[in-house]
């Protein structure tokens, strides 16, 4: 997300872009969790060298 604050309107827009069109009441219900999750996303954005790839994600020998 790259942002650490959110309100209901912004949350509704993001969820709609993700395919979820929710009522204002439903969005309101999600806001506390969304705020906590944004904090986690920010925490995960530590600086890393460009070449730091998640090498555990692909194996050429597929099964």
């Amino acid at each position: 997300m790259g942002t650490s604050s959110i309100d209901e309107a912004k949350l509704a827009r993001i969820l709609a872009r993700s395919g979820l069109n929710l009522t204002p009441e439903q969005v309101h219900d999600l806001l506390p969790g969304a705020t906590l999750l944004l904090g986690m996303i920010t925490r995960a954005q530590t600086s890393m060298p460009r070449e730091a790839e998640p090498a555990v994600t692909f194996n050429v020998e597929q099964r």
Partner: peptide, 11 residues
Amino acid sequence: VAIGGLILGAD
């Protein structure tokens, strides 16, 4: 689970 929609590919 719905808040998972906030997580971008880059995240």
